[in-house]
């Protein structure tokens, strides 16, 4: 570990220098394995946040009953070492073919989508629909604001609490919200949806109801507990 960035009170980005790292593709993840003094091992998967070619980073959300994430978010310091396996995944990977891209992220499900945004040359139109509980929970908020406009459109929805004067969306993702934001199915977009199981199912089902080909929708679910 070579550094850290506090993203939100519950989320931290860890910069890693992984020996022999072969490089990765946007959307892939890696596994972190921690070993206790008594030999007990715990292993969890984390999405890679950095674009290929950038210093390797993961963004981790602290789960209160977790075995690995509390260490990574609260305790790990620059210079600490731990085992990493990866890159992993070939399914939830974006290959830019010029088709418009629709990214749908819930909470820390935005992390692999951010790797895609960071790796975009800007010529392919990308829309991100990003659901967070509160404004404080929005990961990468400043960077998304800064990147918006250069082929990227960002739509936030805050599901639990909205600041006064909030002009974004204020509800969980539903079919009407998807209809307003998603590219028309006839544009043949690539779609990546990442978040909790409930979130991903709702978004994917909604897109199919809008006429999206299920095969064009790539999904990745993560657990709300145990991390």
């Amino acid at each position: 570990m070579t550094g850290a960035l506090e993203e939100t009170p519950r989320v931290r980005t860890l910069l890693l220098d992984a020996e022999g790292w072969p490089g990765h593709r946007p959307g892939q993840h890696l596994d972190v394995r921690l070993t206790a003094e008594d030999g007990y091992q715990a292993e969890r998967s984390y999405s890679i946040a950095s674009a290929p070619g950038e210093p390797l980073s993961i963004t981790v959300e602290r789960l209160e009953d977790g075995e690995v994430s509390p260490y990574l978010v609260d305790e790990a310091r620059e210079g600490d070492g731990f085992e990493v396996r990866g890159p992993i995944g070939g399914y939830f990977v974006w290959e830019d073919d010029g088709r418009p891209v629709f990214l749908v992220g819930g909470g820390s499900g935005v992390v692999p989508l951010m790797a895609m945004i960071r790796s975009s040359p800007g010529s392919t139109p990308i829309r991100l629909l990003y659901s967070s509980r509160t404004l404080e929970d929005v990961i990468y908020r400043e960077e998304l604001d800064a990147r918006a406009g250069h082929g990227l459109e960002v739509f936030h929805t805050l599901t639990r609490e909205q600041p006064s004067g909030w002009t974004g969306y204020s509800r969980r993702i539903d079919n009407d919200l998807l209809r307003e934001i998603a590219w028309p199915a006839s544009d043949d977009p690539q779609v990546f949806v990442c978040g909790s199981t409930r979130f991903v199912d709702a978004a994917a089902d909604g897109l199919v109801a809008l006429g999206y080909d299920p095969l064009s929708i790539k999904t990745e679910r993560f657990g709300a507990t145990g991390g």
Partner: peptide
């Protein structure tokens, strides 16, 4: 149980270890 249901991306690393190749696809 519904919230515990993940998908095959979650075992990509374990499967690489067992089969020696990327298995999610």
């Amino acid at each position: 149980a519904e919230e515990r249901r993940l998908d095959g991306n979650a075992i990509g690393g374990v499967m690489i270890e067992l089969f020696g190749v990327e298995m999610t696809t």
